[in-house]
Amino acid sequence: MALSQLLYSMENKRILETASLTSEKELEDILCENIDLLDPNWLVIGRQVITKNGKVLDLLCIDRGYKLIVLELKKDLTPREVTAQVIEYASYVSEMEQDDIGRAYQNYIEKNPNISKNLNEAFRNKFGIELDESQIDMVPKMVIVAAKMDDGTEHIIRYLRQTYDVDINILFFQIFRYGNERIMSRVWFEENVEVDTKPEYSAKWNREYYVSFGEEDTRVWSDACKYGFISAGGGKWYTQTLKMLHAGDRIWVNIPHVGYVGVGIVQADAQQASEAGWEFDGVYTNMKDMDLKGSYFHHEDDLELAEFVVPIKWIQTFPVKNAVKEMGFFGNQNTVCRPVTEKWDFTVSRLKQLWQIKDSCYEI
């Protein structure tokens, strides 16, 4: 059952006449310039992307949750073969490496000089968060954009979605004429799989905090292990979530792109590093008196950029070389968060098993 669209001018009291696109290239141009027409949470990262078998997919996007999206565009009635076509493209995208994605974006910007020259910058400008390449979901969503589609194709796609939870959808568009203007409307064939077919995970937060420890020259994990703390700095975006932590909370620490390295109990609220101090080896010690490898006292007069620390009593810590990273583990760009996802429950359960952590959570 094809979805029929109609526009009505309330002032002129008439139905707008339909119009058409000149080519699929015109449709492609429109969506590259205005991908928000399809979804405001998408960013175009490739156009006319050549797959390993030499075929060309129309558009490749990524959403703010690091999910790739393959788009196949048809300006008129779409043959049922397009379903197999978009699945084939998705299979090749799933085999891409990160450098393949980088090359696709570079090829895209060569013909679009007005967009960001760097994919990480484009992602940050679009969504206000950093792109974590390690979290990119390489199993893409599939979207067919078409004016019409035969009943057989719609039946196949509904069957794949509802029976096997395949992330495939159709976006129908229609062009109308209003005076000298052409107007585009669009409607999804079905709501996104995540909304209808796969209901949102409803379990309660497991009271376990996730921490991202961004190790670099100024922030060293061995310091954190030895003296008992976590830290973040360089901007409010990185430090503000530290305020979520209070004495008694349990944290699981992940070093981005490396893996999980420790679990411990928060001892006190966040403090600016230059003024911080806590009990170490039975003696209250100022952080400035600790023998540290990192540099934690930068921007002392600028609360926006200064380093902040949270004292931690470690249950277990591991050197970077022994970090744990497994398929399906939770990751996030925020310094601290309280995830409510199956992936986080799985991660904590698996780490408890690997590190032999007692379920009576806060027992050391």
Rank of each mutant, 00 (worst) to 15 (best):
V82H: 08
K25Y: 11
L160I: 00
T347F: 07
A122Y: 04
A306S: 15
T241Q: 10
A147I: 00
V139C: 05
I50K: 12
D301I: 01
G294P: 04
S212K: 10
G65W: 14
M142Q: 14
R64T: 05
T18E: 15
W237C: 00
I265V: 15
Q162M: 10
G331T: 08
A224M: 06
W278I: 08
D223R: 07
K52R: 11
A273M: 09
N118V: 08
T317F: 07
D132L: 13
T335H: 03
L242N: 02
V49M: 06
L160V: 01
E194Y: 12
H246M: 07
F173T: 01
F176K: 06
A232I: 03
E28C: 10
V139A: 13
G228R: 01
D76G: 14
A247Q: 14
F173W: 02
N41V: 00
I157D: 03
Y238R: 14
I87S: 09
K126Y: 07
S116M: 09
I265Y: 01
N34M: 10
F173Q: 03
L43M: 13
A2V: 13
I255T: 05
K67M: 10
E24K: 09
S94Y: 07
F176E: 07
W314T: 07
T163N: 15
T51C: 11
G234P: 03
R350C: 07
K321P: 00
F172K: 09
D132V: 11
E95R: 14
D196C: 06
Q98S: 05
N125T: 11
V348N: 02
D217Y: 13
F297S: 04
P113K: 06
W314M: 04
A306D: 03
A247M: 09
G282V: 09
E11I: 12
A306Q: 06
W314V: 09
M10K: 15
V266R: 03
L242G: 02
E133L: 06
L7W: 01
F297P: 04
I109P: 03
S185E: 03
E215Y: 01
D58H: 04
S116Q: 14
T197P: 00
N169H: 08
